[in-house]
Design a protein around this nucleic acid. Sequence first.
DNA 1: CGGCGATTTGAATTACATCAATCTAGGTGG
DNA 2: CCACCTAGATTGATGTAATTCAAATCGCCG
Lengths: 204, 204
Amino acid sequence: MVHECRHDSASTGRVRAAKGRPIFEQGGPAHPAFVIEAGCVSLSTTDPGGRRVVVTFLFSGDTLCAGVHDSWASAVAVTDCILRRAPDAQAALRPGGSLLAASDDLLREVVTRFAQLAHLDAPDQLRWFFHWLARRTGRLAGQMVELPMSRRDIADFLAIAPETVSRAMRTLEERGELRRKGLHLCQLTFGRRRDACPDAVAVP
Amino acid sequence: MVHECRHDSASTGRVRAAKGRPIFEQGGPAHPAFVIEAGCVSLSTTDPGGRRVVVTFLFSGDTLCAGVHDSWASAVAVTDCILRRAPDAQAALRPGGSLLAASDDLLREVVTRFAQLAHLDAPDQLRWFFHWLARRTGRLAGQMVELPMSRRDIADFLAIAPETVSRAMRTLEERGELRRKGLHLCQLTFGRRRDACPDAVAVP
DNA sequence: CGGCGATTTGAATTACATCAATCTAGGTGG
DNA sequence: CCACCTAGATTGATGTAATTCAAATCGCCG
């Protein structure tokens, strides 16, 4: 079921997945939910035209699941990851349990993102993405944010071309909204833009 | 909680909603799920820029719910509707119960749509929409399909401009893929296009 | 240090949004 | 029953932003 992953002692239920390795595949049987202990996982599907669409990125503390009966998405380790099987599949299914909560959260999140991104241009989408990422990874607004994923991952997440991601970054940088340190570190200076700021609540 | 709707005798739990009337509003408290007995309901949100985004259309037999704790979307009657409260909120929450199933289905559906529409041009999106609609309303491929919703509703569903919907319809018509009878009846002649055909399984 | 993939940059094309005008259908009232 | 009236739908013209193809540069890892 779980491919290309090393299991620690069977008792701990921990699973390691190396960067770039699949955790489960779209169309396969559903898995007990995992909780991510460390690392970043992408949840993606492939559309009929063969293009990849990243549904979401999941981080430390998030619950990883994609379908109760069969998997509607593939999960791939963006960085080296440590996963833990969710304690009890039945418990997870209870109202208030982690699976229903995770499903509800993911639905909300996908719908919200879909709605918010639909009518924004590329730089605004990218600013949205940075705020989203900062919030999900527990960074304060204005703090340095790590970008563990590739430009293509970001592009497939926002459903735009990688070249457009590149240009949008430059645009934000030229506007003075963004500062870059290498390819995988970004700092969002205080965004004046009132819109396109998803629940810009600092998470301490 | 339920606005602008007439209730039949309290015992039946039936609710009528006239065309264009709201059933519940985004941001309000969550409602017990409804089952649609007749008519068409739009589930929509308003993005920060004030633009409407139609998350989905629901039809006879579908379960209507948007959020376990509070409503993340508004429900509006596209046509005159008859709704029935879901039998038991607790039952609905059980694994296999209608609420979890509906939530899972909606998540799947939204993700699938998001993935499939992301990279299609307007005529392909519209063809997708007609197939989707035919399937959802139990029409055979090639049969006449009713379009209860306005062009703007379709536009907000596909996240394109109403004018683009209009032009895309004309394009499909000129290609010989679509035949129109009035504003609200369409027939999709056999689509050769291999792609953009979502689970084109005939529902008898 | 060298090689290779990822990223960035450039130029040309295309598709969509927008604004504005016209047309149509459905509903209303005389 | 018919003429009007209005909101919705269509059509047209234009600007713009994103994709695409192509080339150059950068960064990482062996």
